[in-house]
């Protein structure tokens, strides 16, 4: 049984149909990339998964439970962390307070402290700046903070929306390294990216979204060498 199963998902913005019945699945331990052009429906897919947008029809099943109608604030407790596009760290809170917000639904203080130590080990830069206001961090550091904050909920599935957006090339590489490490640590990853080349290079499998439908799917390596993908998304 797949960890996450999306069946014929349809989503509308008013009368405009953003997702025209997409289906895909994510298995435990995989890194899955959703790639596609601007406006293809990548962010919409993630926002529907985590309850920020309502689905018109279709089903989202996570670990055997139907979560299609679960409200956004209950999703994190079910084991899914969502790193939104643009990072959305709490600018006026310190790095430390942001990380604590990530553990908002958890109660055991000792376990939270363990997770915090783990995040600081993975992102030493966050520990150096733990008392700094999050709004004063650079874009790459904010992305690290957003990732650390998501990890504080101890998710089994982590969904990331454009983690490399607006970052310098050095940070892009660093962020993708981290995603790989998160995956090696046992967390399943669903990744939405415009940087298709980078995404495909670390993903196991990928789905290509085109104006609200999945046009292609398969092994990431195969897609990386697929001619139409190369033309449309890899600029080759």
């Amino acid at each position: 049984m797949p960890m996450l199963e999306v069946k014929d998902l349809q989503v509308y913005y008013g009368v405009i149909q953003a997702l025209k019945g997409i289906s895909f699945e994510v298995n435990q331990g995989e890194v899955i990339a959703l790639i596609g052009a601007n406006g293809a429906g990548k962010t919409t897919t993630l926002q529907t998964l985590t309850g920020i947008l309502p689905a018109k029809s279709g089903q989202i099943i996570f670990e055997g439970k139907d979560i299609t109608k679960v409200p956004a604030h209950k999703i994190v407790e079910m084991g899914i962390a969502h790193i939104p596009e643009g990072r959305r760290v709490f600018a006026d809170m310190s790095v430390y307070e942001n990380l604590l917000m990530g553990a908002y639904t958890r109660k055991d203080k000792a376990e939270i402290a363990d997770s915090l130590a783990l995040v600081y080990r993975r992102f030493p830069r966050l520990e150096e700046r733990k008392n700094q206001r999050a709004g004063t961090l650079s874009g790459g550091e904010q992305q690290m903070l957003a990732m650390g904050r998501a990890l504080m909920s101890k998710p089994r599935l982590i969904v990331m929306d454009e983690p490399s957006m607006g970052l310098s090339p050095i940070f892009v590489n660093e962020i993708f390294d981290i995603i790989q490490k998160v995956s090696e640590g046992g967390t399943t990853v669903l990744l939405v990216e415009q940087n298709a080349k980078k995404a495909l290079s670390i993903a196991d499998r990928a789905y290509v979204l085109e104006t609200g439908s999945i046009s292609l799917s398969g092994n990431a390596d195969d897609l990386l060498h697929n001619e139409s993908v190369q033309k449309a998304y890899l600029g080759e």
């Binding site: 985590t50 309850g51 920020i52 409200p71 956004a72 604030h73 209950k74 999703i75 994190v76 407790e77 962390a81 969502h82 939104p84 959305r88 760290v89 709490f90 600018a91 006026d92 809170m93 307070e97 604590l100 917000m101 990530g102 908002y104 639904t105 904050r149 909920s153």
Partner: peptide, 17 residues
């Protein structure tokens, strides 16, 4: 802290639970 988070960013706050 939930109040601070909602004041800053409602959607992000929801994603924190």
């Amino acid at each position: 802290r939930a109040m601070q988070a909602v004041a800053a960013d409602k959607d992000a706050a929801q994603l924190m639970g």
